[in-house]
Design a protein around this nucleic acid. Sequence first.
DNA 1: GCCAACGTTGGC
DNA 2: GCCAACGTTGGC
Length: 154
Amino acid sequence: MSRNYWLMKSEPDVYSVDDLQKDGKTYWDGVRNYQARNFMRDAMKKGDYVLFYHSNAEPSGVAGIGEVVKEGYPDFTSWDKKDIHYDPKSTKEKPLWYMVDLGFVQKFKKFVSLEEIKTNSALKGVMVAQKGSRLSVQPVQREHFEVIRALGLR
DNA sequence: GCCAACGTTGGC
DNA sequence: GCCAACGTTGGC
C-alpha cells in the first residue's frame, strides 16, 4: 500500500495530541492558507500518516502520530459567522476552505523536539526545520517520517 | 513579548 | 502587475 506522510501543526494550548487521544478523532478546521488547503483538499488520502506537531510550545516538536480518516471536505467553520475562523469569502455554496478528519494513532513515548530534528543529520532538509517555514500542513518524506517515529518510540 | 519571515491586500 | 503596508505565524 502506498501511503503518504505529512506534518500538521497545532498549538497545544488550542489542541494537543492529548486532546486527539481523548477524542479519538477530530476535524482539522481553521487552515486559512492556500497551499495547506490544497494539500488537504487534493493530496491527503485516507490512511496517510501525519506527524502531530506542537507549535508555539515549550518546546515545539512532534508529539505523536495521527491518520487521515476522512479526505478533504469543506471547512464548515468558514461560513459560521460566530466562529473564530469565519471568512466571508467562503460560503456553503462556494466553499473556499477545506479540512480533513484526523484519527489518533499514537502518542510518542518520547517527544521529538524541533531542536532534535534540526540537529539530526538523517533529517536534513525536513521542511519544518527550515527557517521561516510557516506552512501548517506540509508533506514529509517517508524516510524522514520513519526516523522521527523511531525517535519518538525509543 | 519581540520580531523575522512570510502571505495577502490594495493603491496606483 | 508592482510593491508597500499590513497581518499572521511561530521560534525564541
